Computed example of a mutant assay.
Amino acid sequence: MAEVEIERPRSGVALLRLNRPEARNALNTAVRTLLAEHMRALAADETVRAIVVTGDDKAFAAGADLREMAEAMPVDLLLRQTHVVWAAIADCPKPIVAAVNGYALGGGCELAMHADIIVAGEGARFGQPEIRVGIMPGAGGTQRLLRAVGKFKAMKMLLTGEPVKAREAEAMGLVSEVVPDTQVLERALALAETIAAMPPLAVRQIKEVMRLGADAPLDAALALERKAFQLLFASRDQKEGMAAFLDKRKPAYEGR
């Protein structure tokens, strides 16, 4: 069995499932490499319009694999070029939904934060416990967490290493929604299927503008939004969507 399995459960939707249950889906080099390879392939696949990433009912991913890190030296980490692997996920133009049951700790929490929407089970736990083993997050855990929940909540999580429960994560803005544990994957797939039925160019532009505009000055971000808005009027999908609305029929989007 592959350490990352790929499925096509719904029209336009790809599912990536972490498959290291014996290690609570810890993100070793093989898992990160497979995730990156799948993300690059799915980004280029025109039949895929949304991606769901999940683990199992006990763990989304319980962090990095410390067996690969305990004796590593700085040059070892430099040569591993893990930022290139993570970039394949961060730069994916397709919407990503994380379906989180159980633990999302360390690299697992960072992986969830690479998604665009996070659906969490009521029993899920999110945390960045790296400080407890003498290090700190290294795949966006400080910066993405800060931007998601603000300085004071992020500092508490990062400096204590204490995880937060799903409902608290939702209240602080780290989670999109919380559902019963047994409904997590189904809800994530339903959201992905809904997104997959939307006009792909509009979906792509929304994700791109939000990602690039988040850290830009407001005037620059608004200008980026206006240009993307105007560009969509050159698409066949815009003409189809508005015509279908006026004709009171279901639109047929092509991504053109």
Rank of each mutant, 00 (worst) to 15 (best):
E5V: 11
S11D: 15
V13L: 05
L18G: 01
E22P: 06
N25D: 14
L27G: 05
A30G: 11
H38W: 09
M39W: 03
A41C: 10
D45S: 06
T47F: 07
R49D: 01
A50T: 05
I51W: 12
I51V: 15
V53R: 08
V53N: 05
V53K: 01
G55R: 05
D57C: 04
D57E: 12
A61H: 09
A61W: 00
A62L: 09
A62M: 05
G63M: 10
D65F: 03
R67K: 07
M69Q: 04
A70E: 15
A70S: 11
M73P: 00
P74D: 10
D76N: 15
D76Q: 09
D76A: 14
A87K: 07
I89Q: 02
D91H: 11
D91L: 12
C92M: 04
C92G: 12
K94W: 03
P95G: 10
Y103F: 13
G106M: 00
G106N: 12
G106S: 15
G107C: 10
G108P: 10
G108E: 09
C109W: 06
E110R: 01
L111G: 05
L111Y: 08
A112I: 03
A112P: 01
M113Q: 13
H114T: 15
A115E: 04
I117K: 00
G121I: 00
R125P: 08
R125V: 12
F126I: 02
Q128P: 00
Q128F: 14
I135Y: 15
G138A: 12
A139N: 08
G140T: 00
G141D: 06
G141L: 02
Q143K: 11
R144F: 01
L145C: 10
A148K: 05
V149I: 11
V149C: 04
G150A: 02
G150Y: 01
K151H: 14
K156R: 15
L158M: 04
L158F: 06
L159Y: 14
L174V: 10
V175T: 02
V178A: 08
Q183E: 15
V184K: 11
L185D: 02
R187E: 07
A190H: 01
A192M: 02
A192P: 01
I195C: 00
A196H: 02
A196S: 07
M198A: 13
A202Q: 14
Q205P: 03
E208L: 03
R211E: 11
R211N: 09
D215C: 06
P217N: 09
E225F: 04
A228R: 02
A228N: 00
Q230E: 13
L231M: 10
S235G: 01
G241S: 05
G241H: 07
M242T: 14
A243K: 14
A243W: 07
L246I: 13
D247F: 08
K248Y: 11
K250V: 15
R256E: 11
R256V: 11
